[in-house]
Amino acid sequence: MPEPVKKIRGKAAPLEIDDVDTDQIIPAQFLKVLTRKGLGAYLFYRWRFDEEGRPKEGFVLDRPEFRDATILVAGRNFGIGSSRENAVWALMDYGIRCVIASSFGDIFYGNSVKNGLLCIRLEDERVKSLRAEAAKGGLFLDIDVEAEKITMPSGEVIKFSLEPAVKKWLLEGLDEIEATIRGYDEKIREYENRMSHFKMPRKDVLHTE
């Protein structure tokens, strides 16, 4: 169950690549885990480490001025591809609390909400200018989820908007399973009682080992 997300203040790092797929956020070899802890070490692994696991130079998050960044300003279609929730766990374990982009992969976006990673959609041009600002280094942003606004160091305010359900989720850090069971168990039972027999998989199937 995620912690409530109300305000984020942090340094922004620019990621000047469009179409960042979840394979890049965390490669498949790091999906062979039975726990979600420690995945931050593998964030953007192929961009940050060579085949022998030695650090490569130059990836934005490894540059001294961005090492402590907690906000990522990306491009278009961030988080497309595989449904791996490990991508969100890796970003959060690394310390990223917010990703700003002009669009997100649907499954990634949903996974982010569930875990309390704030994803902000802004217009393409807005994202570009923010990324250019971030690239100068030392751009601290104040993000207010309730007010749906980003405040720049200059005092300039950028408004964003969240779907009401997403906003509520982030602000409250809901235990969704508990909430569904408490609020909707009867509805679920009703469906099960009227579910046509033909919609269920046959039960008389013989299995051979």
Binding site: S83, R84, E85, V88, I107, G110, N111, K114, N115, E163, A165, E176, I177, T180, I181, Y184, I188, E192
Partner: peptide, 20 residues
């Protein structure tokens, strides 16, 4: 629909899913 692990857990426990 393809889902993440948290959503999968919700389906395991409730046989239902929240979707937009």
């Amino acid at each position: 629909v393809g889902i993440g692990t948290s959503e999968g857990m919700h389906v395991f426990a409730t046989q239902s899913i929240w979707l937009k």
